[in-house]
Design a binder for these strands. Structure first.
Length: 870
RNA sequence: GGGCGAUUAGCUCAGUUGGUUUAGAGCACUUGGUUUACACCCAAGGGGUCGGGGGUUCGACUCCCUCAUCGCCCA
């Protein structure tokens, strides 16, 4: 059979993906088997695939493919997220490029543009996920704004309102002056900014004296309604009860006292602007101060500011300084670094602003979630995120769920003309309720005005483990889902809230395990970003190295929760592995089989050993998976294939040049190959399918996807151990060859002075693998030979006197020193009565075994040295 | 400012209730190799005393304290 010497992914990947799709192998329907469900974190509908998705979805695909092969009814639910503010920001930008201002559009007109955008880009990312081999149930794809999902969101709002958990409140919110909407605390990113600290002096009423305050935002003085000092600050005792004049606007405001003031910071004297700072707002409430909102929604100054009306807040910050200077109010200006909040989506500086918003009370409904994460009913991997979670949950604030946007689920609150409102799932229902409420049976739909705000995106995605299933029987079967795989950056945004929603709406956890992935970074630990240009396009990588290679390349070194430092050497390593597998297959399939020749002893032994090895490997693999150690699991498969199978097993059974292989060995080898492809499949779906199909005749519709995951039957530990001694012995001969420059093709004689437990089981393999012409068991040391040890057996390669005595002595002495040092350490322990007395028996026994082995080796080495020195 | 976490070979990481060799893996590195699957390969080898200091213990990479450095989250 002619097979190319290099594996070509592009030729096989599309073929098998189509085959899987055509045979509907990803689709799941409820049946009597145990379900295994993963909800895919829905990518943004307008997003494109990046390395983060690649890592995240590879892990999910591995879990789902493995579960499927373990006989579970595996269902991976994909979907896309409307991503309210992110998408709206993009649509606004595109409209701007076309010369259209969002302000000039009606809600419906804007939504038309948004849907247009969605149709244009929507779902591209799901197609891209198929390229990496994702075995999601595409028939179940949803969109968070489609009918079923929207219905669920609106229902939940009404439900929460009726439970008294939703309220409307005027609060200080994070205002995004670009998107013109409130944001939740989680959507604000604080960044260190180099700024200035301005020292301004305010004249005291009826006096020539001034007080100096320090501020980073001089433009906000226009909204000042007090100056605050610490009650214990003796520097200002004489000012108590007085008033000061706010510069430029000449407003008379009181000097108040509050413990909040940090006497060490600035001048110890604080200006209070209740409308534009969270802390000032609270002080203002406490002291009944006037609130003067000097900003418009878009960040320009309002009429209330009196000055600079209509100008942008940052321009005013610059412009107000010379004016203050001229008025004699500037004392000094210092450089100062402070943290400024920015919008996660529009990247503009957040303006704290008072506004009426809808809130969800969080304290009560978050309790079951906290409890069930802390007691591991919902398990976090790695568990260190439990602490992060707890900290947030114990300090949880009410959730601002309203957004002043068009793109999203419109809040189902309907206002009557008198300002009262009803909350209902539909306008029809709202009308009925309104009639009842107002006592006016003549009300029409036109008399109701729906709240213009939409819900926070996360107020829809927190329901997805529930709303992801349309039919009630599906929900009953698949819920709760099994595992969630997501980035740790959205633990609050999404994970915590899904758990809350699960308990609130279903009375049950939404998923049993959460696997947190880290961020994908470049080699310099920089976050991958478009602007840095350090983010490779996953599709380019797939085209270059193959999907399987990119998948495992990403996983070689990415422990749960840890960041992944991506480098192109990783998919390259993946490609090398794929090629290794390919060539192992090429070798096996290339052998000529002879039904009539007898199976060699060496092959029999190798098969017995590898059977046990594979068994042991599967056991280790199961253990890694049970602990969600995906990288370790992959490394286990990688090592068994490359080291144990290719380098040991195949070399052990390989027939002599141009000689055929016996049928029994061939059959066993194909079975091993089949098993290995099956444990490999979740990691490398394409090449495993390609080779599995080529391994033997398969029926139409058959797939490795449906094959059983191999199970363990209990490996023979002593067999495995004996083979390890064999490896040491083969290695010993190889070292001798290297030291003496003896080529592999020249056979050698080997004498073995075995210990009492020496097993000849693998002697046939030793002969073959080390190219030994004559293997002799001896009871005395061999003169004029190079020696080495494997465990407590001594091996001699007779050199017919041509040995370098000095070099041999040096080697033996070095080994002796090592063994003596080792023994010393062991004896120190064993000589300690308290160790022998208090350590567990098994530990002491182990130490005694170490002692015996070391003593035996030392004896052998000492004798050999004495012999050579004679 | 508050909280969480990290610090183990050149790099990225394991090390699972303290005892499994005098700490492991992958990659990288060095040396040798045209054995008829694979140079995207084979073989051999070097390299760390586990961030510093102190403590608990018969015994600590593993537990405690402290210092240093770094990262993340939150305000």
């Amino acid at each position: 059979m002619e097979i190319a010497s290099k594996y070509s992914p592009s030729a096989t990947e599309d073929k098998w993906y189509k085959y899987w799709m055509d045979n509907k192998l990803f689709h799941s329907e409820p049946n009597d088997r145990e379900p295994y469900t993963i909800l895919m974190p829905p990518p943004n509908v307008t997003g494109v695939l990046h390395m983060g998705h690649m890592l995240n979805n590879t892990i999910q695909d591995i879990l789902i493919r493995r579960a499927r092969m373990m006989g579970k009814n595996a269902c991976w639910v994909p979907g896309t997220d409307h991503a309210s503010i992110a998408t709206e920001a993009k649509v606004v930008n595109r409209l701007k490029e076309r010369g259209i201002d969002k302000k000039d559009l009606s809600r419906d007109e804007f939504l038309k543009h948004a849907y247009e955008w969605t149709d244009e880009y929507g779902g591209i990312i799901l197609k891209q996920l198929q390229k990496m081999g994702a075995s999601a149930d595409w028939d179940r794809s949803y969109f968070t704004m489609d009918e079923d999902r929207s219905e669920g969101v609106i229902k939940s709002f009404v439900d929460l309102y009726e439970k008294g958990l939703i309220y409307r409140g005027v609060r200080m919110v994070n205002w995004d002056p670009a998107a013109l909407t409130a944001l939740s605390d989680e959507e604000v990113i604080y960044k260190e900014k180099q700024g200035k600290l301005y020292y301004l002096r305010y004249k005291i009423e009826g006096s020539d004296e001034y007080v100096t305050i320090a501020t980073t935002r001089p433009e906000t003085i226009l909204g000042d309604t007090a100056v605050c000092i610490h009650p214990d600050d003796e520097r200002f005792t004489h000012l108590k009860g007085k008033k000061v004049i706010v510069p430029l606007v000449n407003r008379l405001v009181p000097i108040i006292e509050d413990n909040y003031v940090d006497m060490e910071f600035g001048t110890g004297c604080l200006k209070i602007t209740p409308a534009h700072d969270v802390n000032d707002y609270e002080i203002g409430m406490k002291h009944n101060l006037k609130v003067i909102d000097i900003f418009n929604d878009n960040g320009t100054l309002s009429e209330a500011a009196e000055l600079f009306v209509g100008e942008d807040r940052f321009d005013v910050r610059k412009k107000i300084i010379p004016v203050l200077e001229e008025a004699g109010n500037i004392v000094k200006i210092e450089d100062y670094n402070n943290k400024v909040g920015f919008s996660e989506r529009t990247h503009v500086a957040i303006e704290p602003k008072l506004s009426a918003q809808w809130y969800l009370k969080m304290d009560e409904i978050s309790k079951p979630a906290l409890k069930n994460v802390m007691n591991d009913t919902v398990q976090f991997h790695p568990p260190k995120f439990k602490n992060v979670f707890r900290h947030w949950m114990e300090n949880v604030k009410d959730w601002c769920v309203s957004r002043q946007l068009y793109w999203g689920h419109q809040i189902p609150v309907y206002y009557l003309e008198d300002g009262t409102f009803v909350v209902a799932e539909s306008k029809e229902k709202a009308l009925t309720m309104a009639k009842e409420k107002s006592g006016n049976a003549n009300l029409t739909a036109a008399d109701l005005r729906q709240d213009a705000d939409v819900l926070d995106t996360w107020a829809s995605s927190w329901l997805l483990p529930i709303t992801g299933f349309e039919k009630p029987e599906d929900l009953a079967y698949y819920y709760p889902t099994s595992d969630l795989v997501t980035g740790h950056d959205i633990i609050f945004f999404w994970v915590a809230r899904m758990i809350i929603a699960g308990y609130e709406f279903k009375g049950e956890l939404p998923f049993k395990n959460v696997y947190f992935t880290g961020m994908v970074r470049d080699k310099q630990r920089r976050k991958m970003s478009k602007s840095l240009g350090n983010s490779p396009d996953p599709l380019d990588l797939i085209a270059k190295y193959g999907a399987d290679s990119v998948r495992i390349g990403m996983l070689f070194c990415s422990p749960a929760g840890g960041d992944l430092l991506f480098d192109e050497s990783q998919p390259e390593q993946g490609r090398n592995f794929a090629n290794k597998i390919w060539n192992a297959f090429r070798l096996v399939k290339g052998w000529e089989i002879d039904e009539n020749i007898e199976q060699p002893e060496s092959a029999k032994k190798a098969i017995a050993w590898y059977d046990a090895k594979l068994d042991q490997t599967i056991e280790i693999l199961n253990d890694h998976f049970s602990k969600y150690r995906i990288s370790d699991a992959l490394m286990t498969v990688y090592t068994v294939f490359w080291q144990e199978f290719s380098s040991w097993y195949l070399e052990a059974i390989k027939p002599a040049y141009q000689k055929p292989l016996d049928a029994a060995t061939y059959k066993a080898t194909l079975e091993f190959f089949d098993k290995m492809l099956r444990i490999l499949h979740p990691f490398m779906p394409f090449i495993s399918e390609e080779l599995w199909q080529a391994l033997e005749e398969r029926k139409e519709g058959e797939s490795i996807m449906l094959a059983d995951m191999p199970t363990v039957s209990g490996a023979d530990a002593s067999l495995l151990d004996k083979f390890e001694i064999l490896k040491e012995a083969v290695g010993g001969v190889r070292t001798v060859r290297k030291e003496k420059n003896i080529p592999m093709k020249d056979s050698l004689k080997l004498n073995i002075l075995g210990d009492n437990n020496y097993s000849a089981d693998f002697d046939s393999l030793l002969v073959k693998l080390a190219n030994i012409s004559e293997l002799t068991m001896v009871s005395e040391k061999t003169e004029g030979a190079v020696s080495f040890m494997a465990r407590t057996n001594e091996y001699f390669v007779p050199m017919e006197g041509l040995i370098d005595v000095e070099a041999e002595l040096e080697k033996l002495k070095k080994e002796l020193t090592h063994q003596e040092g080792f023994l010393k350490g062991v004896m120190k322990k064993l000589g300690n009565e308290r160790f022998v007395g208090s350590a567990p028996e098994a530990v002491v026994a182990k130490e005694r075994q170490k002692q015996a082995d070391a003593e035996a080796k030392i004896k052998t080495l000492t004798e050999s040295i004495a012999r050579l020195e004679k």
